[in-house]
């Protein structure tokens, strides 16, 4: 089951650029939360701070309190432990090119030293089913390379890979932006299913997508969070003028 995330005064820098400024919000468990905003507004940096991926870049830095359940991920744990609890799906599908479909999905377990074959088999099947990919690939799980699938299939495989470690939180950084409309709608259906069991944070620049899948939505602008509320409210009755400008397309 998912856990909620409490963010207080999160600041992040990229070199000398202050990309996130004093972000505070509560992301509820077992819901989908969407983050919208124009390119470069900090929404991607924000999700990358939630599993400490931000700091894999040597010039990046973050401060603040991020509580996942009751663990402060910047104080009480190291990045590797946090990332094992949090699944992440990236903007562009990034399968491991040398691995089969099976190995790709099992990679989070295998690379961490998990050896039980029976549980591995079961987990791979369950994850691929959950990612709605099982029927398409079940016949050549170990024969085909993960990189040989189509873009949309690759992205669903990457979701299955993230689900296989049984995470408590699922972070999705524009998961459908590189995909065609059919694949996009499959992924959206998937998110709708998955949010019953996972806390999902999804970054998107597609407002319809946010409206379709998320209960709550946050609007980011220039490194600040302008507004955070229920999706319905954000899209029908935003409090802030800038939010209204953005969602009505009057922005800039």
């Amino acid at each position: 089951m998912g856990v909620g995330i409490d963010v207080e005064n999160l600041n992040a820098w990229y070199g000398s650029t202050h990309t996130l400024q004093d972000i505070s919000l509560n992301i509820p468990a077992n819901h989908a939360t969407a983050l919208i905003g124009p390119s470069g507004c900090g929404k991607s940096t924000f999700v990358r701070c939630l599993n400490r991926m931000h700091e894999t870049n040597p010039i990046a830095r973050a401060t603040g309190i991020v509580k996942m359940g009751d663990v402060d991920i910047y104080q009480d744990a190291n990045p590797v432990e946090i990332r094992r609890r949090v699944g992440m799906v990236f903007q562009r599908p990034n399968p491991f090119p040398t691995m089969s479909i099976y190995d790709n999905v099992a990679s989070g377990l295998k690379l961490n030293g998990f050896r039980n074959r029976a549980i591995l088999d079961e987990t791979v099947e369950r994850s691929l089913r959950a990612a709605a990919l099982w029927d398409e690939v079940k016949d050549d799980l170990k024969k085909k390379s993960g990189a040989s699938l189509s873009g949309g299939q690759q992205q669903r495989m990457c979701i299955a890979r993230a689900l296989a470690v049984d995470p408590e939180v699922l972070l999705m950084d524009e998961p459908a932006s590189a995909l065609d409309p059919v694949s996009t709608s499959k992924i959206e259906d998937l998110i709708f299913e998955l949010k019953r069991q996972y806390t999902i944070v999804i970054v998107t620049h597609n407002m319809q997508q946010a409206a379709r899948v998320a209960e709550n939505t946050g609007f980011f602008l220039n490194g600040k969070m302008v507004e955070f509320d229920s999706t319905h409210k954000i899209f029908t009755n935003p409090k802030d003028k800038r939010t209204e400008d953005y969602i009505t397309g009057r922005f800039g």
């Binding site: 599993n51 991926m53 894999t56 590797v80 432990e81 946090i82 990332r83 094992r84 609890r85 699944g87 992440m88 990236f90 562009r92 990034n94 399968p95 491991f96 090119p97 990679s107 989070g108 690379l111 961490n112 990457c158 890979r161 993230a162 470690v165």
Partner: peptide, 17 residues
Amino acid sequence: PHAIREAAYGLGVPRWR
């Protein structure tokens, strides 16, 4: 590609691995 390293980091795989 850096994206492949990120995929592994994102799964909580230690750097050496």
